[in-house]
Amino acid sequence: MPDARPIGGEDADAIRSALAGVLAAQDDLERAVAQALLNGASVRAVSELGVSPNTVQKYGRAHGWPTDANRARFNESRWDRYGREADERNG
């Protein structure tokens, strides 16, 4: 078995910096996915950008999705949706 050798300070700093960037990017991704869902995007539409549907739902739930309004829209019939969208277009 190879002997354990310590990592140099400069290498350790580079790894810590990169890891901090990865963690920040992960947080940004989670919040962006959740915000898209909160804004009314479907899980399918978000997942088409490269995030699995299960992960999309996980990130959404972690940040307050679905809201009562999201649930209501999910459960509305096609005719209810057409009526709501027509009302929104007509002011």
Score class of each variant (00 low, 15 high):
residue 63 H to M: 01
residue 74 F to P: 00
residue 17 S to E: 12
residue 41 A to H: 09
residue 27 D to E: 13
residue 89 R to G: 03
residue 72 A to S: 05
residue 22 V to A: 08
residue 35 Q to G: 03
residue 39 N to S: 10
residue 20 A to T: 13
residue 36 A to F: 04
residue 46 V to R: 04
residue 34 A to M: 01
residue 1 M to P: 08
residue 72 A to G: 02
residue 86 A to C: 06
residue 36 A to P: 00
residue 37 L to P: 03
residue 16 R to F: 15
residue 69 A to V: 12
residue 58 K to V: 12
residue 24 A to N: 12
residue 88 E to S: 12
residue 3 D to Y: 13
residue 1 M to T: 10
residue 91 G to T: 05
residue 72 A to M: 07
residue 44 R to N: 09
residue 87 D to F: 15
residue 44 R to E: 13
residue 91 G to W: 04
residue 6 P to Y: 07
residue 14 A to W: 07
residue 70 N to H: 07
residue 58 K to P: 01
residue 88 E to T: 07
residue 54 N to V: 15
residue 5 R to F: 04
residue 37 L to K: 01
residue 64 G to C: 01
residue 28 D to A: 15
residue 48 E to N: 12
residue 41 A to V: 06
residue 77 S to H: 03
residue 53 P to G: 07
residue 40 G to T: 10
residue 72 A to F: 06
residue 43 V to L: 01
residue 34 A to D: 03
residue 8 G to C: 02
residue 35 Q to T: 13
residue 23 L to H: 09
residue 18 A to W: 11
residue 46 V to S: 02
residue 90 N to E: 14
residue 17 S to M: 09
residue 35 Q to N: 06
residue 66 P to N: 04
residue 34 A to G: 01
residue 10 E to F: 11
residue 5 R to Q: 11
residue 11 D to S: 10
residue 27 D to M: 05
residue 24 A to G: 07
residue 56 V to N: 01
residue 23 L to F: 08
residue 48 E to A: 15
residue 43 V to F: 05
residue 22 V to E: 11
residue 29 L to G: 07
residue 50 G to R: 07
residue 21 G to S: 02
residue 33 V to W: 03
residue 69 A to L: 12
residue 22 V to L: 11
residue 80 D to Y: 05
residue 63 H to F: 01
residue 78 R to H: 02
residue 67 T to E: 02
residue 75 N to A: 15
residue 79 W to V: 09
residue 91 G to I: 07
residue 40 G to V: 14
residue 64 G to D: 01
residue 89 R to M: 14
residue 20 A to M: 09
residue 22 V to N: 02
residue 8 G to D: 14
residue 55 T to F: 02
residue 22 V to H: 06
residue 29 L to T: 14
residue 35 Q to W: 05
residue 87 D to G: 08
residue 31 R to A: 08
residue 62 A to R: 08
residue 60 G to S: 00
residue 53 P to I: 01
residue 15 I to R: 08
residue 59 Y to C: 03
residue 17 S to Y: 05
residue 51 V to E: 07
residue 51 V to A: 05
residue 57 Q to I: 15
residue 1 M to E: 06
residue 3 D to C: 04
residue 16 R to L: 14
residue 2 P to V: 11
residue 71 R to Y: 03
residue 70 N to A: 15
residue 65 W to P: 04
residue 34 A to N: 01
residue 31 R to W: 05
residue 5 R to C: 02
residue 80 D to R: 09
residue 52 S to C: 07
residue 31 R to L: 08
residue 48 E to Q: 11
residue 73 R to H: 13
residue 2 P to K: 08
residue 50 G to M: 04
residue 15 I to T: 10
residue 84 R to P: 02
residue 53 P to F: 00
residue 11 D to E: 13
residue 11 D to N: 08
residue 50 G to E: 08
residue 71 R to I: 15
residue 61 R to K: 10
residue 36 A to R: 15
residue 86 A to T: 03
residue 46 V to P: 05
residue 8 G to H: 09
residue 18 A to D: 08
residue 88 E to L: 14
residue 70 N to S: 14
residue 34 A to Y: 02
residue 63 H to T: 10
residue 88 E to M: 10
residue 30 E to Q: 12
residue 76 E to L: 11
residue 60 G to I: 08
residue 67 T to W: 10
residue 86 A to G: 10
residue 63 H to G: 00
residue 69 A to P: 00
residue 47 S to A: 06
residue 8 G to R: 05
